[in-house]
Design a protein around this nucleic acid. Structure first.
Lengths: 135, 135
DNA sequence: CTTGACTCCGTACTTTCCTACGGGGTTTAG
DNA sequence: CTAAACCCCGTAGGAAAGTACGGAGTCAAG
């Protein structure tokens, strides 16, 4: 199939396919005489793999490693497991950071009833006076 | 004080100060005869405000609005409250997204003991077969 | 007075993940 | 046969928040 059909089936932009090729995420496809790229079902599956891995929080760089591992059938899958476990830890770190933010913000916003002028706004005062985050 | 000292006290890069000036987050400072920028304590407080607001999850664009509001003492602080409440909602959305990722990933990673080759890796199989996220 | 540290400026680069543009050739439906 | 739709390519833009560079001028200490 040609680029356009692959793009439609994978629900990505045509440019994205070219981009993935440049990034080494998609193999360089054979060309017709016209110069048009000729793709297979495997390429479709590969793009879907990429998209799902992205949904799971993997970056393209990490996905490249997953794809590379997948390409070597006798490779050890402990590496894949490790990547997954590290990604979970990474996500949990980000959740904790966001929760910390949310708590600070809740605390700050809770002191403001939304009445009056900014001159005496408790939210702005709180941001002005807050300690620099020890992060 | 000059740029370098301001940068040290605010614990930011000198380039960051120039960048904030370009972005309109810092007022254009007066210059000495030499052309050097001359900053005041207010500028230091302003950078600290920016940094703390960033720690709370606000983007520079949003911080610009907070600073603009702050500049008009008779402005209504309901707007500030609204920004804070929206930011909390935004953070909670991001937390939920991450939690969804984490659960999927935990589920997937839980089916893999890290033994064997990638040919039969349950994690890779799961990514290959997953439904595209309905998001 | 010299030397090293600082400051100036505009521009370019970084990271991540694409998206868009424009001028050309190709394919396909009618 | 022609018009629409498709594909090619390289390059540029974009969002976010900076960081880096390099040549030139300035300031402060010894």
């Amino acid at each position: 199939m040609k680029t356009g059909q692959l793009a439609r089936e994978a629900e990505v932009n045509v440019e994205t396919i070219r981009y993935y090729e440049r990034m080494g995420l998609l193999p360089v496809p054979p060309r017709r005489e016209s110069g048009y790229r000729e793709y297979s079902k495997d390429d479709l599956a590969r793009i879907r793999f990429i998209k799902r891995a992205q949904d799971l929080g993997f970056s393209l760089r990490e996905i490249a490693e997953l794809l590379d591992l997948r390409a070597v059938p006798e490779a050890d899958n402990a590496r894949v497991k490790k990547l997954a476990v590290e990604k979970i830890a990474d996500i949990e770190r980000r959740i904790r950071d966001l929760e910390r933010m949310r708590e600070s913000l809740r605390h700050i916003a809770g002191t403001c009833d939304g009445a009056g002028t900014v001159e005496e706004c408790p939210i702005l005062r709180a941001i002005e006076d807050a300690q620099p985050s020890c992060h």
